[in-house]
Design a protein around this nucleic acid. Structure first.
Lengths: 197, 197
DNA sequence: AAACATCGCTAACATTCGTTAGTATATTAT
DNA sequence: ATAATATACTAACGAATGTTAGCGATGTTT
């Protein structure tokens, strides 16, 4: 009888959720079956249900744990007494590092939240909308204070957030620059643009 | 007996593929069933198979028709005798407009290609990789010619391509700026950056 | 109007899916 | 050692999936 191996103080549920993140990223939520997950964990499919309520519950856990980290961060950044540019850069760096170091979860939360079911779905969409509005508000302040050029703040937010999700390609690429180089390049391009001056 | 309505010189197959694009975008390839598609088309599921070979064939058609449009465009742009910055801007504008006006197809091609099956899958991945290398090569030329600041070209490409996929959010948003405004804002931010100077 | 091809229908198929019930085994607490 | 709890197993379920076969209806050509 093959028990789920737990290490580093993880509960068995956490092991399952972590493996699920990898699987959901690789195949997508719908295409990843509970039998796939069971195999990855080293156990029979039915045994998973001793630890989780349902497949969808795993997605809940992933999506909301990621969302909460971003919400806490923007709370923290908003409270700071710094310029808008610095606030934006801090948020971007946080996004970049989350995407680099918690790749699987962040990616799944980003791409698979559609498969949540109500009331979690509307909940998640709301949080997302509000987060982006708060991000846009920081940019708008920067525009008013003349630190940021006159652009549509909402468009700037969607550009930046989606640009960061491109780190997916970095993860998959064979000839990687280092994580630090990636971070600096992204900040340089997103904040400063492409052109030389 | 409900026949598939064809208008604007579309074959019935093209009608099916177009409806499928919408459906695949909304629910994802795996979650969208042939019975869903049949309902959207106004026919029974089995009837679809008079026009298409399989569900996956629809995905092939979508992915490769989009990929071919981008390949033709980069052929055209590479052949021009213009600066790297202008070439990049032209490619970006093409991407933006494709995403605005052929939203469903482009989005599906971007997000659902994973569900292609070999040999189409490796084929698609190859095309994608080569396209990005050609894009990166243009950026590298611009760096050498000092028009573009010293950045990692591959990172710049992934930022730009993923940023553009963010137009998805624009489509979904209720308070839209116009398509032209969106295009100008995106070019301004991606090429020129955020900061005011 | 007859012949032919196109198209849509019903019915059914083999798989795969998430999940539950019931039972056996391992671990922990007494 | 014994009891209690946690965990895994086998077997099976009903539902949904992509797809095929066979037949009848529609549209087109002669």
């Amino acid at each position: 009888m093959a028990r789920i191996k737990t290490e580093n103080n993880l509960t068995r549920k956490e092991v399952i959720v972590a493996k699920a993140a990898t699987l959901f990223r690789e195949k997508g939520f719908k295409a990843a079956s509970m039998r796939d997950l069971a195999e990855a964990v080293g156990v029979e499919a039915a045994s998973l249900y001793n630890h989780i309520k349902s497949k969808t519950e795993i997605l809940h856990e992933l999506c909301f744990s990621v969302a909460n980290r971003f919400l806490h961060k923007i709370d923290e950044v908003e409270a700071e007494q710094t310029s808008s540019i610095i606030k934006i850069e801090k948020l971007l760096r946080f996004h970049i590092n989350e995407m680099i170091h918690h790749y699987e979860e962040v990616y799944v939360s980003d791409r698979e939240w559609k498969h949540l079911s109500d009331p979690y779905l509307s909940n998640f969409q709301n949080q997302r909308r509000i987060y982006r509005k708060r991000f846009a508000a920081i940019i708008e302040t920067g525009i008013i204070e003349n630190q940021i050029k006159k652009i549509d703040a909402a468009t700037a937010v969607l550009i930046m957030l989606h640009a960061i999700s491109g780190i997916e390609s970095w993860h998959r690429s064979t000839q990687k620059i280092t994580a630090d180089e990636l971070e600096e390049n992204m900040i340089s391009i997103l904040v400063g643009g492409l052109v030389n001056r």
